[in-house]
Nucleic acid binder design. Structure first.
Lengths: 250, 250
DNA sequence: GGAGAACTTGACCATTTGGTCAGATCGTCG
DNA sequence: CGACGATCTGACCAAATGGTCAAGTTCTCC
């Protein structure tokens, strides 16, 4: 129950004109205040919003923002189209909600990058976690990829503010590890890009991966292979395993 | 809009132009037979097709297949829309042309993977080459990425045939290198995925990269940094540099 | 029990958009 | 020069689609 992802949708409620000015959400008009009778049960709104969000994630992933139709989303959610527009006034608002819904999850994955921890452990964990997202929620990744691919009309400010800051911070941690001789001297930001690239690839380019591997679907084993390969590549390529010779470790 | 653009060859659209005058010479799949007067100069058709293809690449990259409008493409090519449809009967046909136009270039880059050559040299070259494509023709990469992202409706067969076979072949080469102790024992296909992922990332996720790096545009220096990072990561992570002492690694 | 909010939905509508057409105009070659 | 195909293009059109409405139906709570 809890895990209400809709919470983040808050910011997308009072949506209005869009285009590229996303931060301007001033909420000029409070949406119908939801009664939400304390009744712990049967919150119709929540139930329907979740269904719509899930359907939307799938459709947006498959068709992109322009290619997706509210009719198809509604159909997939098994609701009449007019009902979809009752919960989400516009396609853009629904799209925003889907994005917000996912960013919340992603951003936090970088939290484990802290100077005190051991980089090889952190990196291995991160790869595993991101790869898991690619496996469990490929559509979320695809919607995000599609958004970025087309110039991030809705996420420009998110990228420039939150994400940039976050990476800036974590780059500091990586730099610290480098200074400590735990990592090779590489550019921290590019290192992060590389991590993102290889892990998200399995969701975004899933069709290609499947075609090349000759699979009808990517199996758990395929992801295990991917994880093993990526981990080895990154750990060997970017980390410096504590050698008996040099300075102490841990 | 057409539900499924895949329709491999939906040229069934009867042009109903007339009933005979066209010599009914549908001989080769080729459309209207181009006179191509030996006139070495001013081949109008070619000139216009090129302009349309370039405009289309840009628009498809920015908007995706569904989001792109033939009107915008035509405008960008500075031609009336009807003229666009004179050269490319449908949006799908134009889109196909854009894709084909690029695959031709990409597929060949893998040619350098031959057993005789030194892997570290080959890989470094490949990374550099792919990264160059990302820099010089980001739109081509984006159109491709978008196509794959949405299930490769137009490229399914290409992926399953040509690409798969090509990777299969090159995987053999990588395996050979591994057997020779020149590379670490990794999965060859996943290794290729990793190469693609990190290099194309700079074209497909350009906006994100720019945002995080705080650049208005990615500079040559940025790509140099990327190349250095990727090369180090991959070479250190996947190759085994000839050690004076025994080959014992690990 | 019933007032009013929350929710539902079929019917509509204004735009957008891919694609067509028929009548010009241009270019080339015998 | 004249024929004829290649090229050009403004005007259209039918289908698709985002979004609106107003008339219901269901819930909640006093």
């Amino acid at each position: 129950m809890a895990r209400d992802p809709v919470a983040s949708a808050d910011m997308s409620r009072p949506q209005k004109r869009n285009s590229s000015s996303d931060t301007s959400t001033k909420s000029p008009k409070r949406r119908r205040l939801r009664k939400i009778s304390a009744n712990g049960r049967g919150n119709i709104r929540e139930s329907n919003e979740v269904r719509l969000l899930q359907a939307a994630e799938t459709v947006f992933a498959e068709r992109g923002f322009s290619g997706a139709t509210t009719a198809e989303i509604a159909a997939r959610a098994k609701l009449p189209k007019a009902n979809l527009h009752y919960y989400f006034r516009t396609k853009a608002e629904l799209y925003r909600a889907v994005l917000a819904n996912m960013l919340e999850l992603w951003l936090s994955e970088l939290d484990r990058f802290t100077a005190e921890r051991d980089p090889s452990e952190v990196v291995a964990e991160y790869i595993s976690a991101k790869l898991n997202w690619s496996r469990r929620r490929p559509n979320a990744s695809k919607v995000f990829a599609n958004e970025i691919l087309h110039g991030a009309p809705f996420l420009k400010s998110y990228l420039a503010r939150d994400l940039r800051q976050r990476v800036e911070d974590k780059a500091g941690v990586v730099r610290h590890w480098i200074d400590q001789g735990k990592m090779r001297p590489l550019d921290p930001k590019h290192f992060v890009f590389q991590l993102w690239a290889v892990t998200q690839h399995y969701a975004d380019f899933e069709v290609q991966v499947r075609a090349v591997l000759g699979r009808r679907r990517l199996t758990e084993a395929d992801f295990a292979d991917a994880a093993a390969n990526i981990t080895q590549l990154i750990l060997q390529g970017a980390l410096i395993s504590p050698r008996p010779s040099g300075r102490a470790h841990k």
